[in-house]
Design a protein around this nucleic acid. Sequence first.
DNA 1: CAAAGTTCCTGCGAGC
DNA 2: TGCTCGCAGGAACTTT
Length: 301
Amino acid sequence: MPELPEVETVRAGLEQAWVGRSIEQVILRRTDLRFPFPERMAETLTGQTVLAVRRRAKYLLVDLSEGQVFLSHLGMSGRYTLVTPAEVTRLNPSGDGVERSVFGELTGFDGRHDHMEFRFDDGSASVYTDPRRFGIADLFERAEEPVQSLLEHLGPEPFAGWNSTIAAERIGAKRSAIKITLLDQRFVVGVGNIYACEALHRSGISPTTPSNTLVRKNGKPTKKLERLVEEVKAVLEAAIAVGGSTLNDFAAVDGTLGYFGHHFQVYDREDGPCLKEGCNGTIERIVQSNRSTFLCPRCQK
DNA sequence: CAAAGTTCCTGCGAGC
DNA sequence: TGCTCGCAGGAACTTT
């Protein structure tokens, strides 16, 4: 369930594990995830040292010593498991083309969904597991990053100067529901289904509100939009602070499960009581663009 | 049946 | 009228 906070948690974990290490071997157990892997991806990665692990939106970007960037997106169900040198020695992984990895006891699913393995010069390994295979792996030259097709149309990062004025400009005359706009990565990046619901609840705004009604005729943001922008940042910040949330098929990069999920105010709480102070409403589930939205009709107008 | 994400397709209205 | 563009809504991918 990787939204921005979860991806940020993974980024921090991979940074710890990978930076300064050189990649000794890459084992690919299939030729694609959501898209085909780039030509010679394993060969290109092999022998390079990891310089940095960055994040843009929900994408992980790994800077390599020969000038390329390895891009990894977790999709819905992707995760990385870090394997210590001792465990690598004990389990003794087999090579490319073998359908399952030997790390199943660490990654689940008997190793059937361990699609990529990275082995490092200190004897450690990292395994990418993704049952639904909505994830992405790609490789490009660092100089090409600004025009990389997956990245070039992304909107602002929430914590890099994004504010209600910018938000109002981006909404313009868009009439679609504000929940849908929050999920649009051209509006702001990193917000997914859970935090969109949570931010709207915290703001007291109905998810079905037409986006353009949050912008004044003169193009300036309304008070409601100002509040929403603040609450988006606040809810993402809170989730980052506890190491990202988790649902049933996401594990933090070090195998530690997050626990912010227990603190959701509306997400997945249909028919539960609204937890807002003084509100006695009941949480409802509606469907927008084929996706569930949770809201309290009493305190979200 | 539903699921954390993203892309692509179709249909429609506006404008040239 | 015919074409293009952008927006809006929906389906699709896959496995548990």
